[in-house]
Each structure stands twice: as structure tokens, then as C-alpha cells.
Design a binder for these strands. Sequence first.
DNA 1: CGATTCTTTTTACATATGTTAAATAATCAC
DNA 2: GTGATTATTTAACATATGTAAAAAGAATCG
Lengths: 187, 187
Amino acid sequence: MDELFQFFKAFYPISPAAQEAITAISTEISMARNKDLQPIGHSCKTIYFLKKGIARIYYYKDGIDVTESFEFEHSIVARVESLFSGRPSRKGIQIVEDAELIAIDANKLFKLYDAFPEIERLFRKIFEAAHVNLVNRLESLQFHTAEERYNDLIKESPEILQRVPLKHIASYLGITQVSLSRIRAKR
Amino acid sequence: MDELFQFFKAFYPISPAAQEAITAISTEISMARNKDLQPIGHSCKTIYFLKKGIARIYYYKDGIDVTESFEFEHSIVARVESLFSGRPSRKGIQIVEDAELIAIDANKLFKLYDAFPEIERLFRKIFEAAHVNLVNRLESLQFHTAEERYNDLIKESPEILQRVPLKHIASYLGITQVSLSRIRAKR
DNA sequence: CGATTCTTTTTACATATGTTAAATAATCAC
DNA sequence: GTGATTATTTAACATATGTAAAAAGAATCG
């Protein structure tokens, strides 16, 4: 759990008591590549912290597998739109590279908010940061070409090419695999 | 301020004392069409509630005016990515239709969070809801055609066509005005 | 009202991306 | 290792969207 609390510290330091409370509602899991951490259709009742490996959130659009987002080690994985709305998610979480995770029971976590305002504040800040990232991602999808988006991606996470299949990168960028292949051939 | 507290209630009801505290850091403003509520380049230190009218958040990409989002009456207007990061925003807020607003001083609001956990919770929920909307918007930009996005938009806010110039709608949809015109001609 | 400006549409052409299918290349299971 | 499966690239063609310029239409202001 140390890595998790280290991660938390960057957002908002919490007391040992709060750490214990979070430990009590968390479990550690390992999961192999290509397994579904959470299947499509279920409500998201868990917030994951990725200690190691890669995960992606995906869904099907007209039968085609679309990657909504990737998460690498030391980040939070959750289907926010289900977590915050309580509705079942049309999205699943798949492990892309063998992963070690900490699973935090979301309902129990939300209950902790009353007793520990510091925990509420911590997660508020975590999701605010996620919100900022999302706004930037939106901007990139709204007015950058696919080629610009590809270049930005490998500039920001160069290792992604070694660790994630291109088909997933293509749909993440909002284009087909063929189109991504063409863009790559240009360079 | 009544309308504001009515709006709050749907997210999380707060005590009279909390309401007073918010009232004390808020001011009411009116602003005419085409005026800039907040110019590009400043840090966002204000959270607005739109009582009446329409606002848009916009920026320039390669010299072209791009609308990131529209807000209609009874919603919150804020450049979140600046508000949460503290960094100056490359985006501005423009009034699209004569507006009446309540301006909440963001720094003072954040200070209230310590004394009033209920206020922190309220705004946490407000921005969580905004986050959910953003995820859905992302999905629409990532894998719907421009035509689908246009149809979805007028289905969801039909009055937008009467109240917002098409040039702004075009950039909001991530396409040029010419392209939007073509899509409209089809129907 | 008439002139000016701003908005929207239209046209013609260029480019980017999608679709389908086939060919390679890489990976996996036995 | 070998065959089967999966991933990636390439080709050929169709379609959507971008760009630039002009025309038409609507709103604004003296």
C-alpha cells in the first residue's frame, strides 16, 4: 500500500488514521494481460490504483473495440461516468500489460468521506486533476489532426509504442488502424 | 441568489449558514452579447452561475476562434483547467446572449471548504457531474461522425440553432463552418 | 432607407480518412 | 520448432472534410 500513499501525498497528505481506513477497504490483486478487470455492463464499484502494468478502458461502437483511455503504473483507473452517476457502464477495463493493482471499494470509500473530510478532499483533488486532463484531451480531439494527435502521444508517452498494440492506439486517437499505419509510414 | 441555491439543491442541500457564506463572496452581474466575461490569458479566479442567457468558452487555434463549450441558463461556467491547476487559461469566456450571472470568488470559495465541508462536498458533486458530461462529449468526438454529432446536438438542445451563430456551433463540433453548412443542406 | 458589416451558403478543388481486401510480420500454443 | 492465430502494413477505391473564394442572405447603424 506504500506506493498508493506515496501517490496520494502528491495530491493531499492524509493522516495515518485515514490511511488505515483506506487500507481496510482495499485489496491487492494481480492480473494477466488480456484479462478483463471489469467486464462491460457492470456498475463501477471499484477504484483501482495501478502499481504496475497497463490498463485500458474500452467499449464497443458499432461492434468495433474502441479504447477510451490508457492508464500506466502509478495512476488511478476507474470508469468515472459510472462511478459518479451510479449507472452501469457500457465500458470495460482490460489489462494490457501484466498488472498489479490495489482495488478500493468505492461505496465504502464514499462512506468514509463523512468521517474523514481529508479523504473526501484527497479524492476531490485526484478527480479534479483527471478532469483537467480530460479537458486537454478534448481539445486535442476537437481541433488537431490525427497526425498531430499521434505525434503528441508518442512525445508524451514514447514507451507506449513498445507496450501497447497499435490497434488500441488507433482507436484511442479516434482513427482506424489503417489510417494510423499510413501516418506512421510517413515518418 | 435564490436560483443559485435552487440549483445547488439538486446536487447537495446546504445549510442556511453555508448559503450565507456563499452569498457573502458572490456578486450579481449583467453582461451584453459579444462582451468578454473573462479575457483570454488570465487565471480563472471566478466561478459563474448563469441565471439567464448563454456563454461560451473559446480559444484560438492557429488564429481560428474555437468554441470549447456552451453554457445555457442554470449552469455553472468556469474554465476548469485553469481553476484547478492555478495556471493562466488560454481560454476566454464570451457572452453569446445577454446574460445575468452570479460571480463567485473562487479563492474565497476554496477557503470556505475548511469551515464548511458541506460546501466542499457540494462543489465536488457539481464538478463530478461536469466530469461525467465531459467523458460523454469525449466519446462523441472520438468516434462519431460530424453529422452524428450535429444531429445529437440539436436533439439535445434544439433551441441552440435559434440562439447561437452557426460558426460557433461548427467549431464546437470540431468541423469548419463550410462542412457544417454541407451537413445542414442534406436534411 | 441605404450602406456596411457580419453570417451563412455554395462552388471547385485538394487532402485526409474510411472501407475492404490481401499480403506480411509477429506472436502464441502445442 | 511448426502451424495457427493475431497484429500490422499495403493497395485501391469511396467518402468526408478542409481550403479558398465568391455569392447570397441577414443584421446593424447612421
